[in-house]
Design a protein around this nucleic acid. Structure first.
Length: 629
DNA sequence: ATCGAGAACAGGGCTAACTT
DNA sequence: AAGTTAGCCCTGTTCTCGAT
């Protein structure tokens, strides 16, 4: 404000040409002294204003002119002086008013904010209190139910008038169940977790990214993880402990290609081979692999088709129509072999294309997040409606972009099942790489751009054998650090212990069956453990950052969080394209900053490590050196 | 509005050149 | 001789822009 006032005053003072002429020899327009004149302390802006005022009044004494000119000039000077004074007064008044308004507005905003915050906090507190009350009520009810149940158990009586009922939903009905309830009991629901990920190259060599990919595989906790673009050549195979690799590598590579390209395959959990006969049934078409699963202990069978279709503008010779024609043929051939699942990267952006015939097929519409369509997308939608398959993306669980990079985002990876099998999908979700990186606590050298798609599939089967071991049960760990003193000696379990001892004695002395005796003992201890010892919360994949990135620090964490936050904002935003572009640019900037910082800290760390090693090597105590490496 | 070509970018692997 | 690295090439993806 003051600076602009000074400018105004300067302009007014320049009305006097004589002043300019006279003054020019001693000072320039900025008021700085010319070379050769005496050096003076520079005035503050306030002083400057006062000086200007003085100068204006001093200038009035200068003229040597004719009488009439003198009179006119004197009048103009008076006028200018009056205007200057008026402007100065006006300026002071404006400053006063401005500060007064600012103070008033601040006070009002403060009071309004205080009221609003109080109101919101009050509401929030009330909501939390209500939630607490509800939870307490539920806990009380659960406690009461448990007490009643325990009482009945202790008394050794079961209320015959109201038998315990277990409701199993979505289980297929068998007519024989009417006469024999054991058939229902023998029905087993198996749960599979299937996933698909376009990893864009999984090197057989041990490097940073292969470590990260193994962690992703571990994190996904999949029984079957389909992989697209394995980039493996000829008969190359991947090896990850706990999994077996079944792959179909691309055979005809570009003559100049220095590495493999394309290629599909799947990691299958080793335990699955105990319960299933698993075989490749078709790999006749490049980019399509069919794997057949046949349960050894039940009539459950299903086939999984893993696909990779290069983009239409790929430099490779590819014919999308032929690809879908082949896939159609294979689906018709394989659908007689039980359930069918198709997954993979189709490079198909379907937009609002429908994968069913409206008015004829009874399928729920899907939500669309990627509205752009391409040629592959049109062909893919047509293919799905031809074979009566529905994509899971946008229909179940969490939908998200399957490709996210600074270049852009899209939905190109899909999971598809026949319409009638949609109700067997319990859950479907798309995990962004940024979230996966956070979960596994490992920042790879290069961040993959394809998300990972996961779906939980319920397979209903009729069990043929007691040896069934399809789903690996989750191990529950209990806290054994603080075993209560009355463990197995409490009055409520004493009778149970005595009974078990009798049973064990019978098994050993009468039946001579050591295994059954041991089973009895084990069951007794496990029951008591489940009643008395709390479960240890197992945090999966929450390793220390330092385990993988010893140079990880707060700056990197902060920058990573910022990049993730901006990525989310960009992806969630639905508004003007200009604003969306701004948000994307902001995300790209933060992401690049993170990459730079990551490299910087890594370099620093390595240099420091090198120096430390050097120092240890030079020191007298060589043992430290050998220990550290 | 649509389509297609090309640009831009990123990941990954190989290799020649360079360093130790 | 062994290890390291910059540069090149291939591949895949989205985006932009001009032609229709």
């Amino acid at each position: 404000m003051q600076v602009s006032d000074v400018n105004k005053i300067n302009m007014i003072s320049q009305v006097n040409p004589t002043h300019d002429q006279l003054d020019y020899t001693t000072s320039n327009s900025d008021g700085n002294t010319q070379p050769g004149t005496s050096r003076k302390r520079q005035n503050s802006e306030k002083d400057d204003i006062e000086n200007k005022k003085l100068k204006v009044t001093e200038q009035l004494q200068i003229p040597v002119m004719g009488e009439s000119e003198k009179f006119s000039f004197s009048a103009i000077q008076n006028l200018a002086t009056n205007i200057t004074v008026s402007f100065n007064m006006l300026s002071d008044r404006m400053i006063q008013m401005e500060s007064s308004i600012e103070a008033k507005i601040s006070a009002k905003i403060e009071s309004a904010l205080e009221t609003k915050v109080k109101e919101e906090v009050g509401k929030f507190k009330k909501d939390i209190q209500q939630d607490f009350d509800r939870i307490n009520e539920k806990i009380d009810n659960v406690q009461k139910s448990y007490d009643d149940l325990a009482k009945n158990k202790d008394n050794g009586t079961i209320n015959s008038s109201r038998a315990a009922n277990i409701v199993i939903k979505n289980l297929e009905y068998d007519a024989r169940e009417k006469d024999d309830n054991q058939i229902t009991v023998h029905k087993v629901q198996a749960l599979f977790r299937d996933g698909v990920w376009n990893c864009r190259g999984w090197s057989t060599r041990r490097n940073d990214n292969s470590t990260f990919r193994k962690l992703v595989l571990e994190h996904s906790n999949c029984d079957i993880l389909a992989i697209c673009e394995s980039f493996l050549r000829e008969e190359e195979q991947l090896c990850v402990p706990g999994y077996k690799w079944l792959g179909h590598n691309r055979t005809n590579l570009h003559r100049n290609a220095v590495r493999g390209s394309g290629g599909v395959g799947a990691f299958i959990r080793s335990e699955l081979f105990n319960s299933f006969d698993i075989e490749i049934i078709d790999k006749s078409v490049e980019g399509i692999l069919w794997i057949y699963f046949n349960c050894k202990y039940s009539d459950l069978t299903f086939s999984l088709g893993i696909c990779y279709l290069p983009p239409s503008i790929s430099t490779r010779l590819n014919d999308q129509e032929k690809f879908f024609e082949n896939l159609l043929h294979q689906v018709y051939c394989n659908q007689l072999k039980g359930n069918t699942i198709i997954c993979g990267d189709f490079n198909a952006r379907c937009g609002f294309n429908t994968d069913y015939i409206e008015g004829i097929d009874d399928v729920i519409p899907r939500s669309v997040i990627d509205s752009i369509e391409n040629h592959n997308g049109d062909l893919f939608s047509d293919f799905l409606s031809d074979v009566n398959f529905a994509m899971l993306n946008g229909r179940l669980g969490v939908n998200d972009y399957t490709y996210i990079s600074p270049a852009g985002k899209s939905v190109v990876d899909y999971f598809c099942v026949p319409y009638e099998q949609l109700n067997r999908i319990l859950d479907f979700k798309v995990l962004r790489m940024s979230d996966v990186i956070d979960s596994v606590n490992y920042h790879p050298e290069s961040i993959p751009d394809h998300s990972i798609l996961l779906c939980d599939i319920k397979c209903v089967m009729k069990q043929n054998s007691e040896n069934y071991d399809c789903k690996v049960s989750k191990r529950i760990k209990r806290n054994t650090k603080n075993v209560p003193n009355d463990f197995l000696t409490d009055e409520s379990v004493q009778q149970m212990v005595r009974d078990t001892i009798t049973k064990i004695e019978n098994f050993i002395h009468v039946d001579q069956d050591i295994q059954s005796a041991y089973n009895e003992f084990q069951e007794l201890v496990q029951r008591e453990m489940s009643n008395r010892l709390p479960v240890v919360k197992q945090i999966q994949n929450k390793r220390s950052k330092s385990f993988y990135k010893p140079y990880w620090n707060e700056t990197l964490q902060k920058q990573w969080n910022t990049a993730c936050e901006y990525e989310k904002q960009w992806l969630k935003f639905h508004g003007s394209p200009q604003r969306k572009k701004l948000m994307k640019d902001r995300y790209c900037y933060e992401r690049k900053t993170f990459d730079k910082l990551n490299r910087k800290f890594k370099r620093k760390f390595n240099i420091q490590k090198e120096r430390d090693l050097q120092e240890q090597l030079n020191s007298n105590c060589k043992r430290d050196f050998w220990r550290s490496i």
